[in-house]
């Protein structure tokens, strides 16, 4: 093969280097700002910094030493694990049914699923439903109303539809029931889509604070995202209020916010390496065929 021109090589490396930096710098800046001390932040006039100065973990200490944090962390992990498992089971079941040609009632159900993408139930009806089901102040209120996400059903259905029909036909001939086909044949070849959809669900469960805000009344049942939310909005503004002595002991607002951002990224960072090999394939599903 002909050796490429040196100039082209250099240009390519520069272009790639710049692209990489464009991706890395914001992340770096977030981490640096979360570690920066008050003086460095003040010097940057309230902006982000690229170097933390005298690095301090005070923001992390603050958010992790809050009154209800340890509990909230356990709660969030529980909800994320249980919610993701249930969501995956329900989504896979529904998507599989909708993907089988000629399955009973699949068409109208598919329309209902698609409809839920277009029309939302609204804040107050959702609240009243949860209340009527006696789920207020229960962790189930954070899982059941969002158990199945239509978008994810469509993606998973597209994946199942792409499986070769011959696979199913041969299984039928060997006497497998529909359930056996799903568990023995379909699921083992669907790891990629499960990885992707599972990550979508997990991240959503981990970061959701708004439903908890509406449905969970006791602070000792709060998930982590809602606890972190209280830090995001604590800043006194001109329209806000004097918040008292405890507020003055908190680290600067921006530092706290960036620390929270890092904390909320952790689960994805933890899980991603294990899912990476499935990921490239998984996200392509349904990209060209809906």
């Amino acid at each position: 093969m002909e050796k490429p021109n040196v100039l082209v090589q250099v240009l390519k490396s520069v272009a790639l280097g710049v692209s990489v930096l464009l991706v890395i710098i914001p992340f770096w800046s977030i981490i640096a700002t979360s570690l920066a001390d008050r003086q460095t932040l003040d010097q940057s006039a309230g902006g982000m910094v690229l170097w933390p100065g005298d690095a301090t973990l005070s923001a992390y200490a603050s958010i992790l030493s809050g009154g209800v944090v340890t509990r909230a962390l356990i709660i969030s992990i529980g909800i994320t694990v249980a919610g993701t498992a249930l969501s995956l089971a329900a989504t896979a079941g529904l998507a599989y049914w909708l993907s089988r040609r000629g399955a009973f009632g699949a068409k109208p159900i598919l329309l209902l699923v698609l409809g839920s993408l277009l029309f939302s139930p609204g804040l107050i009806p959702s609240y009243l439903l949860v209340k009527e089901l006696n789920l207020l102040d229960s962790w189930w209120s954070l899982i059941l109303p969002v158990l199945v996400n239509a978008f994810n059903v469509i993606v998973m259905r597209a994946f199942f539809q792409e499986l070769p029909q011959e696979l199913f036909d041969s299984a039928y001939i060997d006497g497998a029931s529909s359930f056996t086909i799903l568990t023995r044949i379909v699921l083992p070849v669907s790891k990629a889509v499960f990885a992707v959809i599972g990550l979508f669900y997990a991240v959503a469960y981990w970061n959701a604070f708004f439903n908890a805000l509406l449905y969970i009344q006791s602070t000792d049942k709060w998930p982590m995202a809602l606890v972190l939310r209280t830090f995001v909005v604590n800043q006194t503004t001109i329209a806000g209020d004097q918040v008292g002595a405890s507020a003055e002991a908190l680290p600067p607002q921006l530092q706290l916010q960036m620390a929270i951002l890092v904390v909320s990224l952790i689960p994805i960072l933890l899980v991603y390496p294990f899912l990476q090999r499935h990921f490239a394939r998984g996200v392509m599903i349904g990209a060209v065929k809906g």
Binding site: G122, L123, P125, S126, N149, F200, V203, A204, F210
Partner: peptide, 24 residues
């Protein structure tokens, strides 16, 4: 990054304003 987080939150949020009026 995650569509479902986006969907759920914005749906709830944007519904919030209308629902306020509705509720009252």
């Amino acid at each position: 990054m995650s569509e479902i987080a986006f969907n759920r939150r914005t749906l709830l949020r944007s519904a919030g304003g209308a629902a306020l009026l509705l509720g009252s």
